[in-house]
Amino acid sequence: MEFFFEVLIGGLLSGVMYSLVALGFVLIYKASGVFNFAQGAMVYFAALTFAGFVDMGAPLPVAFVGAFVSMIVLGILTERVVLRPLVNQPQITLFMATIGLAFFIEGLAQIVWGASTRRIDLGITDEPIPYILDRFNMVVSTFDLIAAVIAGALVAVLAAFFQYTKIGRALRAVADDHQAALSIGIPLQHIWAIIWTVAGFVALVAGMLWGARNGAQFALTFVALKALPVLILGGFTSILGAIVGGLIIGSTEKLAEVYIGPMVGGGIENWFPYVLALFFLLVRPEGLFGEKHIDRV
């Protein structure tokens, strides 16, 4: 039973890491109704930029600020060059644009910083907490716990931002209808630039944490694949959904890998969350916390 709980807790904490990436998707989707295919590339770009500044000798806070400024510039440029010409275009057009953007960002990151893996050392140990190991014979990593706290804090801040600020309300209006939002004086371009910057900030935090574990490397673009089933479960428009979805996906994929995997040859944790998401789609297409879509007939 101890092992079951160890896997469960490990899965929940891994799920938090997925949620961090999913949050970036949710932010863009809420503001523009577009699934941002480039979110994984943004995580990679942010992590590589942060690591690049550190390698140049910058202290961690300076590197963080430098990377954040880079993400702001990237967000503004994305709005100017990619999104602004596509206002009022069908959402599929915007989606296709983000596919192109993903390739561009991946290439840009490698041109600027090189394709080599860079180490990120945040000074957080990724080792079992001795107290929990000795007392409960369970492995829980310090790093995972701190990542969970950071994710929780991010969610609280973002939820408050969307719910209680003027910009948050404007963001929700833009997500609902671009043209209507424009007609009542909401500056669409500013809103998009802000939301891409916030998504860039979330990508930076996710990139730093994922990069601290795996190094800042191209494979970080794949974490986006981990976030997809999280979004389907939690709903594309809910910040809380991203967290809950992450927890569900993280825990079930780990339990499935450990308990079902050996029966079918193992290596199932990549596709198992998608199967789970498929079942959710059949029962609740909008996800656990997504907005129910009602069409007027």
């Binding site: 092992f3 160890e6 896997v7 490990g10 899965g11 891994s14 890491m17 492995v139 994922w210 795996n214 494979a219 970080l220 794949f222 974490v223 981990k226 994929e253 780990k254 890998e257 450990v258 995997g261 040859g265 193992g266 290596g267 199932i268 944790e269 990549n270 596709w271």
Partner: peptide, 21 residues
């Protein structure tokens, strides 16, 4: 004991928990 890791293998918590077990 055979423990496969699906590509690209950036998340291996479950596999290493199996190793520990």
């Amino acid at each position: 004991v055979e423990i496969p890791v699906a590509h690209p293998g950036i998340e291996q918590t479950a596999q290493w928990q199996q190793v520990r077990q």
